[in-house]
Design a protein around this nucleic acid. Sequence first.
DNA 1: TTGAAAGCGCTAACAT
DNA 2: ATGTTAGCGCTTTCAA
Lengths: 336, 336
Amino acid sequence: MARHAGVSLATASRVLNGSTRAVGERLAARVRASAEELGYLPNAPAQALARSSTATLGVLLHDVADPYFGAVARGVSDAATEAGLLTVLLSTDGDPEVELRGIRMLHAQRVRGLVLAGSAYTDPEVTARMDTALASYRAGTGSVAVVTDHGPDYPTVSPGNRTGTAQLTRAMLELGHRRFAVVSGPDRMRVPAERLAGVRQALAEVGLSLPERATVATEFSREGGRAAMARLCERLSPEEWPTVVLALSDVCAVGVLAELRDRGIAVPGELSVAGFDDIALAGDLAPALTTVRVPLERLGAEAVRMLLDPSTSTPGRPLELPNEVVLRASTAPPPS
Amino acid sequence: MARHAGVSLATASRVLNGSTRAVGERLAARVRASAEELGYLPNAPAQALARSSTATLGVLLHDVADPYFGAVARGVSDAATEAGLLTVLLSTDGDPEVELRGIRMLHAQRVRGLVLAGSAYTDPEVTARMDTALASYRAGTGSVAVVTDHGPDYPTVSPGNRTGTAQLTRAMLELGHRRFAVVSGPDRMRVPAERLAGVRQALAEVGLSLPERATVATEFSREGGRAAMARLCERLSPEEWPTVVLALSDVCAVGVLAELRDRGIAVPGELSVAGFDDIALAGDLAPALTTVRVPLERLGAEAVRMLLDPSTSTPGRPLELPNEVVLRASTAPPPS
DNA sequence: TTGAAAGCGCTAACAT
DNA sequence: ATGTTAGCGCTTTCAA
């Protein structure tokens, strides 16, 4: 391609890929014409090797097909595109081992940055191994940002887990609810604990507490929510029966609603249900789901921004995105 | 790293990355130990340059956050992972220009294969440009597979657009419906036409036809469906009023349901509604959506399979995945 | 402003 | 079985 234009490799490189060096307009035009004519496309791996830096970002999440992570992925990839970067995506199913392997693969790819969504685990050994892998990645000029708290070492953007559930709980208290049940997430993850803490806090403010038996941990999935609701139904005696169940994620809430429908328990007539996230179809469910709206795509986009410009993030202080309780048909005052 | 183990670069390369050549167990162990100790990770761009082949796949789709494309993306990335490949994802919003640019970017990345989902456009000029870009990509040893028909030149996996809507239509006919309306997709896309053809065919089989005025084209989105339904309501006189409306995609159907809910039109009491795709929450909507179930993830996975092993696909004959009509609460016999 | 040449980190002949 | 060496296609000093 360079010889087709009758110029040196260096010159061709300078005009086709943004160099600081200026090139004469005559030559530049000739190079561009040749490139066009030959359908020349730069070899990105070669560029990456020469520049020792790629134009790609990696994102690790549980499942692209999940509405929550899908929206975050969209935010990441939009922000990446805007920054001229490509996004490589890895679904980990929330498996720490897969996650670890993913970090190493993306490190091997020398992606410029890494966004971790939903990778906060409770197991200290897992956390330590992740820290090690990430430290080594960062040592090689990669940068990291996380969605949801991983500790002070990482630029963090958070959906306001604690404040969100606290507000939601207060909204339910205002409706008149006093007996709460919670469908939480898996113990191995850190997010459910944060969200649960918000519920407990808001309850404590009015002198209430959450009975241990009214809290059940489950996977953050539709089936998880369904199973959890079934367990609650079987476990709780009539005196323990709640007037509202808080699912700590919308996809769980969907399962909760399905289980209640199957059991013929009216929502919100007999029992109110609320979720968290405001995923895409939350308002179209039967009944429309009360939830905490989180700017899902922004979550991803802000993570990318932080990662690309670390100066905009304060170490130790997560960027907490504003959230908002959205009251819909799945909640009502408790039955009298 | 090689010198740390006291061996040559070649030997190190041979043990760390699968070469055909055998290496003595003593040396191999030493190399592995050093690699481990130094936390060595191969530089993928350098490997790609040397091997002139990457371990990545590209996938182009409208929107990862859309339940349809999210599921397809999951299928692609799972199959890719299984084949030891990473997935680069690009959301194009169904914009042909973005799509074209995407193909070139992924070509520049020298991705091993390219999966196109939802990129079949009607505009012959767009199609020609895509063909050119893809031909040049393939000339460079990249391979392509498409989800949904792009013509005989590409290995194709299809959700059975025509047969699916035909079956759906027959199911509605069996319920007793005779007056149909259709919320179709954008004219610039090829998929809606295929799906519409299925409806027309099934109708023709019983001597019926679809009135032009009862068909409206719109974006394949919730808002698109909503707007389309509104237009139908305004456009159709009482005599033209249908007993069932077929939305040619589930996300559209969601909008249709929302609009009908707002207008106080009972589904399925006054009007039945059906969709296509069976996206994740279709069964949890209000009311649960009758639709055509498509194995969404398999769509993506099969595309990857074809792309990796072209011998398994027959040129000119798309692999049509089995689909199945799922009757739910949004459809019922017409009001008497 | 342009060109020549030395790598970037790896793989794959080719030797030994 | 192991080592030597010539690239892979680009960027970037360094000279001119």
